[in-house]
Design a protein around this nucleic acid. Structure first.
Length: 209
DNA sequence: GGAGCGATGTCCT
DNA sequence: GGACATCGCTCCG
């Protein structure tokens, strides 16, 4: 065994449950730079998280959990580290990860990824012409779900801390240099709360509207 | 390159 | 019946 410190630091490992057992804004900020890994057929589609938003349980009018526990949002009230996937505007899915301890609601919305592996397949899943601008693949919550073939039926309730899950979040020891905090995007309630976190100067963050 | 708007399913009141 | 954590197209400058 002659593995150097440099190469061993690049070995990716799944992010543990304890990581998610904290407040949504803490988890959101800490998720920047982590990798979303999707085993799709025989391929591995990978994107680095560059933009996220925190949603605060029953106290946050913009959060799905604000109205209390229902069949739809049950995942947010359950154990941490579970994928919460919902369908929005009749055609798109959005990917969240539950946080806070079991019984307490909270979640983080993954808003944008920097594509790392499987770009050709992502383009096909997005129904784009070959060799599109990479920003069109995964910059936006609806886009990244389409690019990684993430659906509510297949992935809602999945444990992203399980190394055998087809959708999981891994840490390869990448640490973003600078992080920016802004209000959340595309919501009507509590739109002034600074709960959107992004990697400063990264080209793959989604635009504001 | 930016603002406006329509498409479209699911869930809750 | 209406809200909705979106996107891509159109139209205008």
């Amino acid at each position: 065994m002659s593995r150097t410190a440099r190469s061993s630091s690049k070995v990716a490992s799944v992010v543990p449950v304890s990581f998610y057992e904290r407040a949504p804004d803490i988890v959101a900020r800490a998720l920047l730079g982590k990798m979303v890994v999707r085993d799709w057929k025989t391929e591995r589609l990978i994107g680095r998280i560059v933009e996220v938003e925190a949603y605060f349980g029953t106290e946050d009018p913009a959060a799905h959990s604000y109205i209390g526990r229902t069949a739809r949002n049950a995942v947010l009230f359950g154990p941490p580290g579970i994928a919460y996937v919902y369908f929005i505007y009749g055609m798109y899915y959005c990917l969240n990860v539950s946080c806070e301890p079991d019984g307490q609601a909270g979640g983080v919305l993954i808003r944008a990824l920097e594509p790392v592996a499987g770009l050709e397949t992502m383009a096909k899943l997005r129904k784009l012409a070959p060799n599109p601008k990479p920003q069109l693949l995964t910059s936006g919550p609806g886009r990244l779900c389409q690019a990684l073939d993430i659906t509510r039926a297949a992935h809602n309730g999945l444990d992203v801390t399980d190394p055998s899950s087809c959708l999981r979040i891994e840490d390869d020891n990448y640490h973003p240099e600078a992080i920016q905090v802004t209000p959340r995007i595309g919501i009507r309630h509590a739109a002034d709360l600074p709960a959107r976190f992004l990697i400063d100067k990264n080209k793959f963050v989604s635009g504001s509207r």
